[in-house]
Simulated scan of single mutants.
Amino acid sequence: MSEAPVPEVRYDVVDGVAVLTLDAPSRRNALSVAMAGELAAAVARADGDPAVGAVVVTGGPHFCAGAERSVLADAGEDPVEDGRYRALGAVYEAFTRVGTATVPTVAAVRGAAVGAGLNLALATDLRVVSRTARLLPGFAQIGIHPGGGHFTLLHRAAGREAAAAMGVFGEEVDGERAAALGMAWAAVDDADVEGTAMALASRVARDPALARHLVASFRRETAPGGVPWDVAVELERSPQMWSLRRRRTP
């Protein structure tokens, strides 16, 4: 009997926060198809648990080195062959699923976030990075076009100039520069990254139901293009009325 594969995404819940830890250090957490599926399933698990009010995504000392090279190589041989097309799509789903989690999400980034790994970090609602973290697209450097909505994610986080510098011209930024650009909320010492991320996540996770309403409104109102103020007032009215009524309910 063959042994079951060793999980490459650890799932733990601490103080209402689901901690999703990428755990494939031998390849610096590069996303394989199987690992991407595990990550998407872990987000779904957090979504389905009403006691979870936030998610922290981390990779320990190596956040994520992008998509596993074999996935890219296979896609390059025949990009529209069904199996290979689906394989690359599974990698995309790893970070698009994080971006559509029903709870607030925080990335705790140490080491490098490259290509799809940078997409994963940028898919979260908030990022805490090590001062020495390396954030870089890495696509053009290996001769391929960015994927996974990379330009949109960069532009949303840091604006057009940074999206051009990184996505087109291949610039790399460290954690301190990322925070200065608005790509991260805080750049801290390496040893403090996960602790800072957990402190932020656990604060909102104290009230999981409210956390889900908060992040839904936040994403609607800050989506690319935004919404007019009067529309935002109406968007917020329903969840605010729910929260006020809930406070009066024994």
Rank of each mutant, 00 (worst) to 15 (best):
G76T: 10
V55E: 14
D82P: 10
L154K: 05
P7Q: 06
V43D: 02
A75P: 07
G16Q: 01
S26C: 11
T132E: 07
M241H: 14
G226P: 02
A133R: 00
A123L: 05
A44F: 09
E194S: 11
L154T: 01
L88D: 08
G225M: 01
M35V: 06
F151Q: 14
A209I: 03
D174I: 01
A90N: 07
A107N: 04
R69G: 15
R237T: 10
T196Q: 05
E194T: 14
Y92G: 15
R160H: 12
V233H: 10
D192V: 03
V9F: 08
E194Y: 12
D230G: 13
A73K: 08
H150K: 03
S217P: 09
M198P: 08
V215L: 05
T249A: 11
E221F: 10
D78C: 09
A216Y: 10
V80F: 11
A67H: 05
V128Y: 06
G138F: 04
A87M: 04
R237F: 08
G148Q: 01
M166D: 08
T196K: 07
W229A: 14
G226Y: 05
A180L: 02
A4D: 12
E194R: 13
A140I: 13
A73I: 12
G60S: 01
G59L: 01
P250L: 08
T249G: 08
L126Q: 11
A30Y: 01
P239G: 02
G16N: 01
A216F: 12
A101S: 05
A123H: 05
V173P: 02
R237K: 10
D12A: 15
G115C: 13
G83P: 03
E161C: 05
A40D: 07
T58E: 10
R127G: 03
G147P: 04
A164N: 15
T58N: 03
D12P: 11
A133P: 00
G83T: 07
A87P: 09
P137T: 05
V14G: 13
R203H: 13
T21D: 12
D125I: 02
R220L: 14
A46N: 07
G148K: 00
L136K: 14
S2N: 14
G37D: 07
N119D: 03
R86T: 11
E221A: 12
E77I: 11
T196P: 02
H62I: 10
P5V: 05
R27V: 15
A101I: 00
V17G: 09
G111E: 01
R134Q: 12
A4F: 12
A201F: 01
